[in-house]
Computed example of a mutant assay.
Amino acid sequence: MNDYSEKGLLPAGLADMLPPAAAREALINRTLMQVFAANGYLQVKPPLIEFEEHLLEGSGAAMASKMFRVMDPVSHRMMGIRTDITLQIARVATTRMKQDPRPLRLSYTGQVLRVHGTQLRPERQFAQAGVELIGGANTAADAELVLLAAEALGALEIGTYSIDLTLPILVPTICNELNIDEETARSAREALDHKDAAALTGYAAPLSTILIALLKASGPAKQAIAALDAISLPRKAAAQIEALKQVVRELAEASPNLRLTIDPGEYRGFEYQTGLSFTVFAQGVRGELGRGGRYLLMDGEPASGFTLFLDSLMRAVPRKTMDDRLYLPFGTARETGFDLRNKGWKTVAGLAPEKNIKAEAKRLQCGHLLAEDGVEKLP
């Protein structure tokens, strides 16, 4: 192995992003942030690394195993590289922006790093973009976020996707109301999440009856709601179902063609969510496009939000031919190039006299060149 091939090696889960992929990701990112800003979300930018204890406070403890840690040579305190930006926004909302009027709408974008990937997302470093709605405790806030995610995907021209709604604390609530012991409650939650019908039949009634009914209730929203209505649930669990139904009604009224599914027992990936949550999937695309849901800040303030994963979006956004690179032959006036760039062209200027201008333009991956009579498209 020579020195050049050795230098090209990177740790597992990390990769260089080359042209034109880097430009595509940047364009996707700009489009998302424009949609968020147009809906009143103010952009914030937390640091890539901060004190470990801040990142692990409250709900952040669920991400501890995924975090890279380093020693700060200045303070001699342990620091952590963020694994998720949502928790940083929660910190900002409860400290620097605690006095700002609620509901507080914030947006963000940036890179995150994790110790290990997953089967669906082996990448350990990837970009996130998302929003947080701080202070909204009603179903209108949940519906706003789902609709905003749909609007963002529409702006990216992603046509075939679905939004899967879930209630990650539904099973714990049921078990608590039925006075189920902690170990049984944990195993029941895992069995339902893994769709293990055989395990679900092993619990005592009425828990087994409820869990099997919840398993059968997964599917398109209309059929799932009908199945959930037929289940006899304890009071607090029934209230969660009513809230879910209200959100579905609001979504159906605002966006009748939105594809909604419901999986009431799913909770993996929603470690710190405390209410209605959702995942976005696109047909034929590896990994989820994004996920979000309701949670509580450290001071108990209600919040909800979602994160979109740009690596997954890259696989879902329709690929378009980049044909806006324009070759400017050596000696082209600077003012001419400036005028063409103002018209939307990406110009590539020749740095030496060309023997064959067309061949040089193609060699530099340009689809057009500036000829004597104007812009000429290359074959």
Rank of each mutant, 00 (worst) to 15 (best):
G13C: 06
E132R: 02
L340R: 05
V44W: 00
F126S: 10
G159Y: 12
L340H: 02
K355W: 04
D3F: 11
A237M: 06
L251T: 04
K45S: 13
D323A: 15
A64S: 10
S208H: 12
T274P: 02
E190T: 14
G374D: 05
L42M: 13
A21P: 00
L297N: 01
L308V: 05
S75F: 10
I134W: 00
A239L: 13
A152K: 08
S304G: 13
K320E: 15
S312I: 04
I174D: 04
A224T: 04
D84L: 05
M78E: 08
R189C: 14
G8W: 01
D323S: 12
L56T: 12
G305N: 03
E250D: 13
N257I: 11
H54E: 11
F338K: 15
R82I: 00
E6G: 07
V112A: 02
Y272P: 02
E354L: 02
M1K: 13
C175W: 02
K343M: 11
T279S: 14
F278Y: 13
L289V: 06
A238W: 04
A141V: 02
A191H: 09
A239Y: 01
I174A: 08
F338A: 15
L297W: 09
Q125D: 07
A243S: 14
M17A: 12
L10Q: 09
D311Q: 14
A352P: 04
P20V: 09
T201G: 12
L207A: 09
L369V: 03
A213V: 06
E301F: 09
G159E: 10
L296S: 12
L276W: 01
E50P: 00
G159K: 14
T261K: 08
A221R: 04
P329A: 06
K236D: 13
R186V: 07
S312C: 08
L214R: 09
E253Q: 12
A38H: 05
D181Y: 00
R69I: 11
G350N: 06
D3G: 06
E242Q: 12
L370E: 06
R294L: 02
V92Y: 00
N342F: 03
M1N: 11
L214W: 03
G300K: 08
L106C: 01
P220R: 14
P172M: 03
R69W: 07
G350L: 08
R259H: 14
L145G: 05
P20Y: 07
N176S: 15
K343G: 07
L106S: 02
D311C: 09
G275L: 05
G305R: 04
T83L: 05
D229I: 07
A191N: 05
V35A: 10
L258T: 09
A64D: 12
A226F: 04
Y272V: 07
K320T: 15
A352R: 12
V146H: 08
A224P: 00
R114P: 01
E52A: 14
V92D: 00
A26T: 12
T160R: 15
Q43P: 01
F36N: 11
G290E: 10
A150S: 13
G40F: 01
R102N: 03
Q88Y: 04
R124P: 02
Q99G: 03
T261W: 07
T166H: 08
P46L: 00
Q128A: 07
K195S: 09
E242T: 15
E183F: 08
P206E: 08
K346N: 13
D16I: 05
T86F: 10
D72Q: 07
